[in-house]
Simulated assay, not measured.
Amino acid sequence: MVTAETARNVVGIIGNVISFGLFLSPCPTFYRIVKNKSVEEFKVDPYLATVLNCIFWVLYGLPFVRPDSILIATINGVGLVLELIYICIFFFYAPNKERKKVIYWLCGEVIFIAAVSLAILLVFHDHKRRILAFGIICDVFNIIMYSSPLTIMKKVITTKSVEYMPFYLSLANFLNGCVWTAYALIKLDIFVLVSNGLGALSGAVQLILYGWYFRSTPRDEKVVELKASQIQLSVSDGPDRV
């Protein structure tokens, strides 16, 4: 008989695989940057935001905060490494103004994370309160990240075109949210449940919009490459996406 813990681990591994795919989604963008030796109009902001999100989810999944959630820490650790690689590539090809922005933001994030983490760990000495504190912070950042597709969805409705909404990315976000929601329900984790439940809902709305406006999308328009950097995470959602 399959135990709840075994089922949770299996679902978590599936979630890790899907989340890993989402973390890799910006690769075409950075291939283009390297190929053209220019960041063009791409923005680094989503990657800086995802770094902050991933670090807090890594902390949330570590044993000194939540002992039974190592799969959350692993996928967000992988996501953190990938996001830092993306930022390094951006930094290498960016103009001086953008480079300064990256340095200032990363320094600010390090100070913010260190201050918040030390305060929580020093003030709260039991798992229950640490989970509550880190969980609330993680959910706040995740909700902010999950709200990013709202501008794209608004554009789809106003233009009656899905040109700027990639189907497979929307589908992956929906599946990612569903898998991590199931993970959170097997052994109730309210913080993973809230953020990924919203992620699944967001993905579902995107898919509905895609299906509704697909036929009305002009076929003679020049296909504009979607800048994946402006649509992220939601990974870790895993739990960036978690």
Score class of each variant (00 low, 15 high):
M145N: 05
V34S: 13
L122W: 11
N196Q: 14
I33T: 04
L226D: 00
Y146D: 10
V11K: 05
I136Y: 02
F92A: 08
I157D: 02
S148P: 04
I120G: 00
N196R: 08
F91S: 07
P46Y: 09
S216G: 00
V11C: 07
P28K: 00
F23E: 01
A115N: 03
V81M: 09
S234L: 15
T3Q: 02
C88H: 04
V34L: 15
Y146A: 15
C138W: 07
I89K: 07
V44Q: 12
V17H: 07
G15Y: 08
F30E: 05
Q230H: 04
T217C: 01
A114F: 09
A119M: 13
R99E: 10
V140T: 07
S195Y: 05
V123W: 12
W180T: 10
S216F: 00
P218Q: 02
K35A: 02
E41L: 04
K101I: 06
V11W: 05
D220K: 04
L175C: 13
N36W: 00
R130A: 05
V10T: 13
I208K: 00
T158S: 11
F23K: 02
P46V: 10
F91I: 14
E221T: 01
F23C: 09
F90D: 01
I87A: 03
W180I: 14
R129C: 04
F191K: 12
A7P: 00
C54Y: 12
H125W: 02
N173E: 08
A133P: 01
S25N: 02
Y104F: 15
N9F: 12
L207Y: 04
Q230V: 13
G77C: 13
V192Q: 10
G177H: 13
I120P: 01
S170C: 12
E83W: 10
S195P: 05
N96Q: 08
A200N: 11
Y183H: 14
L169R: 03
N76F: 08
F141P: 06
I137K: 06
P166L: 03
I131P: 02
Y47M: 12
Y31D: 00
Y210K: 06
I186L: 15
S117L: 01
M1D: 09
N176F: 03
V58D: 05
S147N: 09
V162D: 00
V179M: 10
P218A: 00
N9T: 14
V140R: 05
F30C: 05
K101F: 10
R66Y: 13
V44S: 15
I85E: 06
A49E: 10
N142R: 03
F90N: 02
Y210V: 11
F174E: 07
V194P: 06
C178P: 04
G21N: 02
V162W: 03
N142M: 07
I144P: 12
N142A: 09
R130C: 09
W180K: 09
I85M: 12
Y168P: 06
N9H: 11
Q206V: 10
L71W: 09
I75H: 02
A115D: 02
Y60A: 05
Y60C: 07
Q232T: 08
G238K: 11
T181W: 12
L121Q: 09
